[in-house]
Nucleic acid binder design. Structure first.
Lengths: 155, 155
DNA sequence: GCTGAAGCTTCCCATCGTTGGAAAGTCAAG
DNA sequence: CTTGACTTTCCAACGATGGGAAGCTTCAGC
């Protein structure tokens, strides 16, 4: 199996497979005489594992641990559970942050009449000279959680 | 006002002020003979505006639009509302995605006994030979929404 | 006036995950 | 042998931010 087939079979792009190899997430693939990488079923399984873990939002560092736990038959389920639980906590925190923001934003939007007139509470709040404006957006001293939706849409 | 004071007063770091200038989000600051930038109240207002918009999760591209709308006294509130509503939609979509993931992860974690034994449904699902495993994590063909929590914790 | 500290300047690098592209080599079918 | 699809490596970018170095300016204290 060449990298293209491996990509198809695993759902991980060829680019990312090379990247994972380069960064040590997966071991260096075997090579044909030509220099082409080739992959076995085993490798495909690993790649699928990685893809699912990424879909579940694990970082590559976490996936590295998950992989080593996966390959270690002696590992106690406890460790895996802890790792996953930690991630879940992060995840929930993230969700709460976003919900606070969405909440505040909804309120502002609701207050904006949205017609041809020029006054707009949304801009006014963002500009916010006065302190009452702040309570909307100065969320608990907020970390700056950029909202990244999908990976940049390829044209 | 030098850049340091401007940073303090606006809550935007000096680094980011320079960055915003370099990338054209804000106009080039006036300079003293020494080459030091200096800032007026007006500039501070703009920076604060930007900071709040970032806290609200707007991208720099969106903030650029918001800024120009803000500075255009003729703009209809409609446009602002549309921009904000679009962002809110994105935000909600993002939240839903994360909630799906958190949901799936919770289930897996709940199913994992988490003691010294070796079998672990979490890893089994990620490895997932069989199709029933997939329904947990192959969420609606999932875009790959990396979960970025806070900006990397400075040491 | 001199010295040192604090603040400013620019420039480069790192993060994180992913994608894009260029230049070159390989393979299989026609 | 040519063509086209695939592969290789390397380099760069995204978005927002931080870290740090090397060199300049400003100001306070003596």
């Amino acid at each position: 199996m060449n990298i293209g087939q491996a990509a198809q079979a695993s759902g991980v792009s060829a680019k990312m497979i090379r990247h994972y190899e380069a960064t040590g997430l997966i071991p260096k693939a075997a090579r044909a005489y030509s220099g082409y990488r080739h992959f076995l079923e085993r490798d495909i399984h690993t790649l699928r594992f990685i893809r699912r873990a990424r879909v579940a939002g694990f970082s590559t560092a976490q996936i590295k641990k998950l992989l080593s736990l996966w390959q270690d038959r002696q590992r106690p389920a406890r460790e895996v559970k802890q790792l996953a639980a930690g991630h879940l906590t992060e995840l929930k925190a993230r969700i709460s942050e976003l919900e606070l923001i969405a909440q505040a934003l909804s309120q502002l939007i609701a207050q904006c009449h949205g017609d041809e007139r020029q006054d707009c509470p949304i801009l006014d709040t963002l500009a916010g000279e006065d302190d009452d404006a702040k309570k909307f957006l100065e969320l608990h001293g907020a970390s700056h959680p950029r909202i990244r939706s999908k990976p940049p849409v390829k044209k």
